[in-house]
Design a protein around this nucleic acid. Structure first.
Lengths: 149, 149
DNA sequence: TTATATAGAATGCTATTGCAACTAATGATT
DNA sequence: AATCATTAGTTGCAATAGCATTCTATATAA
């Protein structure tokens, strides 16, 4: 009674794309709510935490590590800098590079941000065992490699 | 040598959030490229396919099914209507409802869109067995339920 | 019947994100 | 040394997405 593509359509809507998209958007909302008290948006926290894990990093390296466009990185870093959490310093060896460091305020806020992220993560992981979660991560990494190369 | 939160930080950056985010963004890019010939953006295809699967649907029902904000739905439908793929008809029984249908052009483009989505999906699924993929979907559904309730 | 409440949809605003094009600095070639 | 190419980062623009608010139509209450 329906054309062939109808089933195909439902198959596609039921594929990972829909879930990835919905999870992403809902997590953005949850994270934004957690970090609002610190004036850190859902587009900035990942950069703050990456710098916390490796200071003296460049925007280019951040972009590559996080698989985010360099112009997005530039804007996120600018916001973190404006909020006083990150400072930039030109690399004396090559003035094209801006080396990124946490400020004192940045160092102070990182544990708070981590707590907020942990709360969101524990909500997202409800009812999923460590083994299942680890396996899901393996598969997500595969998918990411597939779509990003 | 590093503070305790550093490991926590790496753990968080390595959790599903980063992968979900990166997969979402890269899939948006791939899908946008596939559908550009039809002037359908990455923010509209899911609505087009949902209407194809169930015509005479309302924007409210679409928003709930797809877990997308109703204002986002309104804007996406407006674009699909402007491109001539979808038409709206006020429900004669209740004029608050706009019933959504595909136009002839919409019906014609759906299989093309499906092909493009299938191409992206097959790229994303490379090296993942049917069983693994199915299991990943189960877990993604769990995560989605957790973050959307 | 009129006033209030509710529901679906639309609009204005803002945040996130990426592309194209640009600037500034370094490196390579002649 | 001067020209050209490459690289890191910035800026302008547009698309996606959600919140707050408004609009319009229906339902409920007085």
């Amino acid at each position: 009674m329906e054309a062939d593509w109808t089933d195909e359509t439902k198959g596609a809507v039921e594929s990972h794309g829909k879930y990835i998209s919905a999870i992403y958007r809902h997590m953005q909302i949850l994270i934004a709510a957690e970090l609002a008290p610190y004036r850190i948006g859902s587009g900035q926290y990942i950069f703050l935490m990456a710098i916390a894990g490796q200071e003296k990093i460049t925007q280019k390296a951040l972009s590559e590590d996080l698989l985010i466009d360099k112009t997005t990185t530039a804007k996120a870093i600018a916001k973190l800098e404006a909020e006083g959490y990150v400072r930039r310093e030109a690399d004396p060896a090559d003035n094209r590079y801006q080396l990124l460091y946490l400020t004192e305020a940045g160092r102070a806020v990182v544990p708070k941000v981590q707590e907020g992220l942990n709360r969101v993560k524990s909500i997202a992981r409800r009812g999923i065992s460590d083994e299942e979660y680890a396996f899901m991560l393996v598969l997500l990494k595969k998918v990411l490699r597939n779509v990003s190369e």
